[in-house]
Design a protein around this nucleic acid. Structure first.
Lengths: 117, 117
DNA sequence: TCGATAATTCAACGAATATCGAAATGAAGG
DNA sequence: CCTTCATTTCGATATTCGTTGAATTATCGA
């Protein structure tokens, strides 16, 4: 996953309505949610939401599927996976997620740190 | 960690130079790097980088410390930890990181998914 | 085919970002 | 005190983002 894709994904999530929409889609699971429901739940005009969904879609974080006259959106877990993986590898000094620290998240450093100072 | 903080952090990382700067700081470890070195390595004018560092700082992702006449910046691992934690909890359907799947990342869903279909 | 429904695209606008050179700030050393 | 060095802040500008109503496309039902 190249840095450009990561930046697009981060930028897509870095917005109130888009983050909320994505969270809703994650909760909704694989069955997803139609755009209208999303717009209603977020209290955002249809056209505004459409813009945001396009951003998320362009970032590869969500998928679109037509079902009758509704467009169903659903979260792309693989993409989110890739994003988190990138952040853990590149922005967490490598030591993460039950590797050798046993801790919850990213460890301080490995290079020039004494790791306990 | 509230959504507003998360959005600021995501937005701070959603930019070529800032993501690169943060990665450099993560690699540099707790000893950090002076602004000048960062600017040189990223091939970005000093004033431009200063703007970006301010964004990262405002997002709480990096810390500033004066050392002589240099300003040393270093990554705040706890903040990054919080960000990744939020993403895993809220954008990954809860099942992540060696919890019960054993897989590498976030699982499809829990609610209306049969989890193996 | 006609109308109703679901959603997107278009055009326009203000607000926020990214960029950079020049001037200002803060610290060190003579 | 004055100069130099490391960075930041200040203007100024070009670009991108977020928002919205109006027009458009696509589907369904009768």
């Amino acid at each position: 996953m190249d840095a450009d894709t990561i930046i697009r994904a981060l930028g897509a999530l870095a917005q109130e309505h888009r983050l909320a929409a994505f969270r809703l889609l994650v909760q909704a699971g694989a069955s997803g949610l139609p755009a209208g429901v999303l717009a209603e739940r977020l209290a955002v005009p249809n056209s505004s939401l459409s813009f945001h969904l396009a951003q998320l879609s362009h970032a590869g974080l969500i998928r679109q599927e037509r079902q009758g006259r509704s467009l169903i959106y659903s979260a792309d877990y693989a993409a989110m996976n890739g994003l988190i993986g990138y952040l853990m590898e590149n922005c967490c000094a490598g030591a993460v997620c039950g590797s050798d620290e046993g801790s919850s998240g990213c460890a301080p450093a490995i290079s020039d740190e004494r790791k306990s100072a």
